[in-house]
């Protein structure tokens, strides 16, 4: 029995990780959990902090939920999961406040809002409560890394266009005219919309190509 699960789990690992990172990339492709994504991604550092915080909560909550899965009755699943996630978020909140008060002020309430990130609760409910610790933590890391990547894509574009800087360092010289709108809320919508469009365009193109190759092979 154990050998069977082991062999099944071995090819699972990298594929699971990559699957979460790209194919089902939570921030961009599924477009879930965008609420905290957009509000604080006006700079790269904010996006990075937010992404890492989410990653931490996601991985640890998955592991804990998965550990407790045989002890928690189904009726109180939701509440237990919420308490676990909220506890972890409180820890992250206090930790960020202690490490960098400046970033903490910029992110404000939005760190605490990680609690209601659809991805985390969805992962706890849909995946972690049904699979082993190793597997759910691995899957969670993939999803979390993908989410961080998506946040960085947003934060990078918005910071470069909106301020002409990257991580605080000016990129284009002093007289560059920043596009103020990119750092404002509408810019967040536009940049995320733009990324989604670009990805769907790219996927359609590669899809067409591979379909064409298959047709040729069939002929």
């Amino acid at each position: 029995m154990s050998t069977v699960t082991n062999t099944a789990a071995a090819p699972y690992s990298l594929a699971t990780l990559l699957n979460g990172m790209w194919k089902e990339n939570p921030g961009l492709v599924i477009a879930l959990g965008m609420c905290p994504t957009l509000a604080v991604t006006n700079s790269f550092v904010n996006a990075l902090t937010m992404g890492l915080a989410t990653l931490f909560v996601l991985v640890v909550s998955s592991a804990v939920v998965s550990l407790l899965r045989s002890f928690v009755p189904t009726q109180v699943h939701l509440v237990t999961h919420l308490v676990i996630i909220a506890t972890l978020v409180t820890i992250v909140d206090i930790a960020i406040g202690a490490i960098s008060p400046q970033v903490y002020r910029a992110l404000g309430v939005f760190i605490q809002l990680i609690v209601v990130n659809c991805i985390i609760l969805g992962h706890a409910q849909g995946y972690a409560s049904k699979s082993t610790v190793y597997r759910s933590a691995l899957n969670a890391s993939g999803t979390g890394l993908g989410f961080t990547l998506a946040l960085l894509c947003l934060g990078g574009v918005r910071e470069v266009l909106g301020t002409g800087e990257f991580m605080g360092a000016p990129l284009f010289g002093e007289r560059f005219e920043p596009w103020a709108v990119m750092a404002l809320p509408p810019g967040g919508f536009f940049v995320l919309g733009g990324w989604l469009l670009a990805i769907s365009w790219w996927k359609r193109r590669t899809g067409k190509k591979s379909a064409g190759v298959e047709q040729k092979q069939a002929a």
């Binding site: 709108v181 509408p186 810019g187 967040g188 995320l192 919309g193 733009g194 469009l197």
Partner: peptide, 21 residues
């Protein structure tokens, strides 16, 4: 097709957000 995707919803929200400014 774009019209039925999330991307256009976001763009529309962006334009609305501009208008609310």
């Amino acid at each position: 097709d774009v019209g039925r995707s999330a991307a256009l919803s976001l763009i529309v929200a962006g334009i609305l957000s501009l208008a609310f400014m």
